[in-house]
C-alpha cells in the first residue's frame, strides 16, 4: 500500500508544507452528510444531542428530520440514557455532543446504559482532542480514549480523515453494539486511500517500512506520514500504521510491526495513561518487547490554539521524527 496516500514531500518544516500543499477539512461536514444519508435510507436512525445542534453541524438534519432529532438540552447524563432508551425502542441513535462532556459527564451512563446493557448507541464525540484550543482543558477531550478503553464491550474509533469519518459512521450503524467515535474538528488532510477497507478492529498500513513503525491515529496520522517522508530522506524506512480502532486493538498488526521493525512510536492527541500508546505498550511489553516511544498529551494544556497546543506537546511531524530516531538509537532522548 506504499504511496497510495497523498504524497508528502520531505521538508524541514513539514507542518507548514502540509498546510500549504494538502487541503485540510473539518470532518463535521462529512459527519452531517453521512448521517443524513443513513437517515434517508433507514427511518430508525435518530439523533440525540445536548443543545449542540450547531456545533455538531446538525442544523440541516433537524430541518430535514425534525421529529428524529431530540435535543435534551444541556443534560449529558440524560442524553446518553435517552439514547439507550431509543435503542431499546428499536431505533439506531447517534448521540452527539462535544467529546469532553459526552464522555466525562456521562461516563457511568456510557458504561451501564450503553455498554453493559448492550445497546447499539453510537456516541459521537465532537471537537475531540484539543480542537477547542484556547477554551482550555475543561473543553479538551484528551482523557476520552483512556476512560473509554476501560469500558468492556464498547468499541472506540478515532477516524483520521473525511473518508474514515464516513466509514466509521457506516460501520457503527451496522455494528451490533455500542461505539464511541471521535468526529475531527481540527482540520485534517485526506490521508487514507478512498477505497481502503474499514474493518472492525483492523489497522491500516498506510506505508510499508522495515526499520521503525509509526503508529498514529486521528490528527497525528498526517504528521506521521510527513515524519516518514523525512526519515526516508535520511535513509530510514518507516512503516506508518493507522489504527482507527483504538479498542479493540489490532493485536496482530501491532505485533507484526514489533517483530518486523526495530521499534515503535505511538502518537495520539490524548493522554498517555490509557490511550492507544498504553494499549500498544501493554501488548508489546507482554508479548514482544521492543523499543517504544509514546507521544501524547502529558498534562493540562496551557492557553493556545489547537495547532499551538499540538506543538506544545510535541505532537508534530518533528516530534514523531525525533521519537523515531530515538527508538532507533540515532538520537539520544532529551528527557
Amino acid at each position: 500500500m506504499t504511496e497510495t496516500h497523498t504524497p508528502h514531500a520531505p521538508a524541514a518544516d513539514s507542518a507548514a508544507v502540509l498546510a500549504v500543499e494538502a487541503p485540510v477539512y473539518d470532518c463535521r461536514t462529512v459527519f452531517a452528510e453521512e448521517l443524513a444519508a443513513l437517515a434517508r435510507q433507514d427511518e430508525r436512525v435518530v439523533v440525540v444531542c445536548n443543545d449542540s445542534v450547531g456545533s455538531s453541524n446538525l442544523v440541516a438534519f433537524r430541518e430535514e428530520f425534525p421529529d428524529r432529532l431530540v435535543n435534551v438540552g444541556i443534560a449529558e447524563q440524560n442524553m446518553v440514557g435517552v439514547g439507550a432508551g431509543l435503542a431499546n425502542a428499536g431505533f439506531v441513535p447517534f448521540v452527539s455532543a462535544a467529546g469532553p462532556f459526552l464522555t466525562g459527564r456521562a461516563l457511568e451512563q456510557i458504561k451501564a446504559d450503553c455498554a453493559y446493557s448492550g445497546f447499539r448507541v453510537i456516541l459521537c464525540g465532537q471537537s475531540p482532542g484539543m480542537a477547542y484550543g484556547e477554551l482550555g482543558p475543561t473543553h479538551h477531550s484528551v482523557e476520552d480514549l483512556s476512560w473509554l478503553r476501560a469500558v468492556a464491550d464498547l468499541t472506540v474509533v478515532v477516524p483520521a480523515d473525511r473518508a474514515q469519518t464516513r466509514a466509521a459512521l457506516r460501520w457503527a450503524y451496522t455494528h451490533d453494539g455500542p461505539s464511541y467515535l471521535r468526529v475531527p474538528r481540527f482540520k485534517v488532510p485526506d490521508v487514507t486511500p478512498p477505497d481502503a477497507p474499514f474493518e472492525f478492529g483492523r489497522a491500516q498500513v498506510l506505508r510499508d517500512g522495515a526499520d521503525v513503525t509509526l503508529v498514529a491515529v486521528g490528527t497525528l496520522v498526517s504528521r506521521a506520514l510527513t515524519a516518514a517522508d523525512r526519515l526516508a530522506a535520511e535513509g530510514i524506512s518507516a512503516r506508518v500504521l493507522n489504527v482507527p480502532f483504538v479498542d479493540p486493538l489490532d493485536r496482530a498488526a501491532i505485533l507484526r510491526a514489533a517483530e518486523e521493525t526495530r521499534g515503535l512510536v505511538v502518537a495520539e492527541e490524548a493522554t498517555l495513561s490509557g490511550g492507544l500508546g498504553a494499549a500498544v505498550a501493554s501488548l508489546t511489553g507482554q508479548h514482544h518487547p521492543v523499543p517504544l516511544r509514546l507521544l501524547g498529551v502529558t498534562g493540562f494544556a496551557p492557553t493556545g490554539s489547537p495547532e499551538g497546543l499540538l506543538e506544545h506537546f510535541g505532537l508534530t511531524a518533528d516530534g514523531v521524527h525525533r521519537a523515531a530516531r530515538e527508538v532507533l538509537g540515532l538520537t539520544s532522548s532529551a528527557s
Binding site: V46, V70, G81, V82, G85, N88, A89, G90
Partner: peptide, 14 residues
C-alpha cells in the same frame, strides 16, 4: 429514568 424517556420518545415515534 433517562432510559425510560428514550423508550417513551421511541414509542411516540413508532
Amino acid at each position: 429514568f433517562p432510559v425510560a424517556v428514550g423508550c417513551a420518545l421511541g414509542a411516540r415515534l413508532r
